[in-house]
Structures are given as C-alpha cells and as structure tokens.
Design a protein around this nucleic acid. Sequence first.
DNA 1: CACGAGTAGTTGCAGGTACAACTATAGCAG
DNA 2: CTGCTATAGTTGTACCTGCAACTACTCGTG
Lengths: 138, 138
Amino acid sequence: MLQAHARATQALDTQMRSEHHLSVSSYEVLMFLGDAPDRRMRMSEIADGVLLSRSGLTRLVDRLCQLGYVTRCAAETDGRGQYAELTDAGAEKLRAARRTHLRGVREVFLGRLSPTDQIALGEIWKRFLATDPAGGGC
Amino acid sequence: MLQAHARATQALDTQMRSEHHLSVSSYEVLMFLGDAPDRRMRMSEIADGVLLSRSGLTRLVDRLCQLGYVTRCAAETDGRGQYAELTDAGAEKLRAARRTHLRGVREVFLGRLSPTDQIALGEIWKRFLATDPAGGGC
DNA sequence: CACGAGTAGTTGCAGGTACAACTATAGCAG
DNA sequence: CTGCTATAGTTGTACCTGCAACTACTCGTG
C-alpha cells in the first residue's frame, strides 16, 4: 500500500526530470518561491516547506542559482539571513513545469481513481494532517 | 497531500534506523525473503518487489551479507543467477524489526485516522493498484 | 562595550542510489 | 559447433542527501 505511493511519486519525479531536467525537490522550491510575496523566501522557510535539511537546501539552491532560476541576496535586517528569489527565467520554468506536473498528477491519480475516491482521499489526508499540524511525524 | 506521506514514511524510516540500524529498503528485502519459499529469492525478483534498481539491490544485499542476515548462492539451473537466502540471524532480525514496524505503523497511521477512514483508505488503494497490476506507473 | 547563548547558513564527509558500461551465461538459428 | 541476441548480475562513476562541525551574526545581560 505504501508501495503504491512510492511508485506514483517516483513516476512523477522521472517525468519531471525527463521533461524539464528538474527534480521534484527543485520544482517544489520553485513553487514555494512562486507563491511567496515578492517571489522570495528565507532559506530555512523553504527548507521547512520542502522537507529537506538545511544543508540539502543550500546545495539545491546553489544548483538552481547556477541554472539561473533563482538569485540569492542577503537579508537587510539580519546579517545571517539569505533570501532566495525567483528570477524571470525561474518563473517561466515554473509555469512550464507546473503544466507537466498537473498533467502527470491527472494521469497517475485522477485517471485511476473515481471522483468519489478522489474526494474521500482528500478528506482523509486533510484529517490526517490536522492531527499533527507541525508535521513532526512521531 | 503528497507531503503527508513523505513525512510519514520518513518517520518510519528514521524509527527503523534508530532501533535496528536497518533502512526501510533493507527491511523490505528481509520481509520478501521471509515470505518466500525456502527463504530465498532471485536477485531480480527482489529488486522488482523492493522498487530498487538492480545495482542498488546488489549493494544492499552486499551490506546485508556483511551483517550476516543473508547469504548468497549461485542458482543451480542458471549459471548467471544468484539467490539471496535469509539466515537464521536474518530471520531473527526480521521478527524483531517487524514488531517495531507494526508498532510504528499503528502510531503513525492508525493513531491518527478513524477506523472508517482506515477502511476507506484501504479500499481506495486496492482499487488504485487494481488499475495497474504491473505497477509500472505511467 | 563585552560576553555568552542561540540562530542562519555553509562546508567536509560519508552513505545510498541510479545510470551506463561491462562480464558471464543462456537460448536459439544455421 | 559457431555466432548472435537476450538476460542476470556486478562495477565505475556521479549525484543527491543528511549529519556534524564550522563560521558569522543577533540578542539579551551585566
């Protein structure tokens, strides 16, 4: 049962990689930045959202930087802080990737589950997350 | 929604590592072997079940070998083939790990979902898998 | 201002994984 | 038997990730 999910996410990951040369983690970072005000976020905020360690995020942002999808800038108010900011190229990439992702999700999940199941699943996960908002699973 | 699962499996993985020094992949291999006739399976059979590449499995089995939980032996009928076979120590480890795992699953999932949700979830996943028995996700 | 505790982020290192290339064997056609 | 193709598994390499250690900065206290 857990396998089902593993296969599904792996399929999405592979699709994302082959079509955009982007890992799902990278895509998530882009998504967060795209939704954030001013398209920028603190490093640690992203790390929490993306479910990646800080060191992992540092390196991931480095890669995205090299690709030109984000830029970094120091926080004005906090000398320790770093912002990651989505560039125009990154926003463009995000748009393209989002299309792929939504299509993938449709294919993998929605194409195989009845609408009632989809709704039920959404409700269940919602309740599941509600029991532990911090997500600190155990 | 996908995050929920990621967090949950990661929690299980961490628990398994800390209590038994075993990754979930290793545990899965042990499980498959434990359920197999004669406690042995072909390398590629395991790789398919565990959702790991062949090279990944080779190295994982190597590690389990070093730990003394499995042994390898060539297939009699096929000179290319290799069997992985669970040792007594491996079987013992599996029993201990299974207890941890079941407890972990209870804590993470069953403790947070109502019984009706649990049943519904089971049904939905069953139908999901039924749409693609090969599991070749996309 | 000086100092100690805490926080943000980066870097060294090790572990685990996939991909591609490789070896060895099987199975079939001639 | 020889040669060709396919299959099983292993190895070289590179990537990604986390942990622990580290640097740099902030904040509160004296």
